[in-house]
Design a protein around this nucleic acid. Structure first.
Length: 363
DNA sequence: AACTATTCCAACCGCAACAAA
DNA sequence: ATTTGTTGCGGTTGGAATAGT
């Protein structure tokens, strides 16, 4: 570890945060909001760099963090989003209310990766691991390589424009009994041929429609507020990422320095995220209308989705990939609030108990 | 009980993008 | 147009907790 530059400046503290430091930081943010991190240590009386303060707040202190075990839905969603986005942890985390990019990243590296390998799936490519002889061919492939295969299939004349029964490369990997190519139907209806609708992500025998927010282009191009960013509270407040992907200006939703004193930024975001209980509340956009983002041919695509409902049920690939025995992913180390929802509630309560009205980004 | 190995989370680092001066 | 400062992101690492011997 190299020394920090600083010369005559007081040496900044590093390492784990003490409860006192946490309290100082929380008090400061409650008072002034979370802008201008460089000035936070000075004002708050912390011997930390602003960067460290920001990270501590984003990854640990924010009361809207879930801080519990990842649910099966979250796990499935992470795997799928990773298959689309690769290591874009912030964008993946943006789809998981209450989760940070760091948390998702750690979860991936410490748990999902391992599990996928055990199942014979290459976590880098989301394809079956090649046999030893073909190791060279199975070297990590870029996300674009995976996409190219998916796009190849999606753009093949089998379906043609707006013809739903398209099979993505991924579905070959994940769908139950799909290795023969018979199963794993993924609805696709995007005009640009991108994968835009998937199903089978919740465990309630519902067709989970990811239209819109799983559009790869939208995810890459849209400014999706990350959980780890200062403009996250819109997603915490149940704002559908689909709306973002549909091109709505994020500024009007975000809590950032350009949107001061927006009522939607204060408190309500926390509440909604900490009181979510059902899977669909965790993932509010799952309640989007069927193929809602299939712009020009929405009705036809929706009908097609119904038509292939049975096949879509086959796409509960999590059941296939993770056939039970899902261990709880417990937080380790420092945890000031305990676990899960109760923790988040407690955090919110604690914040409230301090009588600290949170004014986001007031400075 | 003592030691070692492994796991995994929190924190750090370097870089890039962006905005303001 | 350039410089400087700030923020955000992804990769990496330190070390506490846990498991194994």
């Amino acid at each position: 570890m190299s020394k920090r530059p600083g010369g005559t400046k007081k040496r900044l503290k590093r390492g784990l945060w003490s409860p006192e430091e946490d309290e100082k930081l929380m008090n400061h943010i409650a008072k002034y909001g979370n802008g201008c991190w460089s000035s936070v240590p000075k004002i708050a009386g912390l011997e930390r760099c602003g960067k460290s303060c920001r990270l501590r707040w984003i990854n640990y202190l924010r009361p809207d963090l879930k801080r519990g075990a990842f649910s099966q839905e979250e796990e499935d969603l992470i795997i799928h989003l990773h298959s689309i986005l690769g290591n874009k942890w912030s964008q993946i985390a943006a789809q998981l209310p209450g989760r940070t990019d760091n948390e998702v990243k750690n979860f991936w590296n410490s748990f999902i990766k391992k599990k996928l390998r055990q199942r014979g799936i290459d976590p880098a490519t989301h394809k079956p691991l090649a046999p030893a002889g073909a190791a060279a061919a199975a070297t990590p492939v870029s996300r674009s390589a995976v996409f190219s295969e998916a796009e190849l299939i999606l753009s093949s004349p089998v379906g043609g424009p707006h013809m739903p029964p398209l099979v993505s490369a991924e579905s070959y990997v994940y769908s139950r009994g799909s290795m023969d190519g018979a199963g794993g139907v993924v609805g696709g209806c995007s005009d640009d041929g991108s994968l835009s609708s998937l199903s089978g992500y919740n465990n309630n025998n519902q067709t989970a429609d990811f239209a819109g927010y799983l559009d790869a282009d939208a995810l890459h191009g849209a400014v999706i507020p990350s959980v780890s960013s200062s403009s996250t509270l819109n997603s915490m407040a149940g704002v559908s990422p689909g709306g973002v992907a549909n091109g709505n200006a994020t500024d009007e939703l975000c809590c950032n320095n350009n949107n001061k004193n927006n009522p939607s930024n204060s408190g309500s975001g926390f509440e909604s995220s900490t009181t979510q209980s059902s899977s669909n509340h965790h993932l509010p956009w799952l309640e989007l209308g069927s193929i809602s983002s299939c712009t020009e041919d929405g009705a036809g695509a929706g009908a097609a989705a119904d038509h292939y409902g049975a096949a879509l049920d086959e796409l509960k690939w999590s059941d296939y990939v993770f056939d039970g025995g899902y261990p709880q992913y417990h937080q380790q180390g420092q945890c000031i609030y305990g676990d899960s929802k109760a923790a988040a509630d407690a955090a919110t309560a604690q914040f409230d108990a301090h009588g600290l009205g949170i004014n986001w980004c007031l400075n």
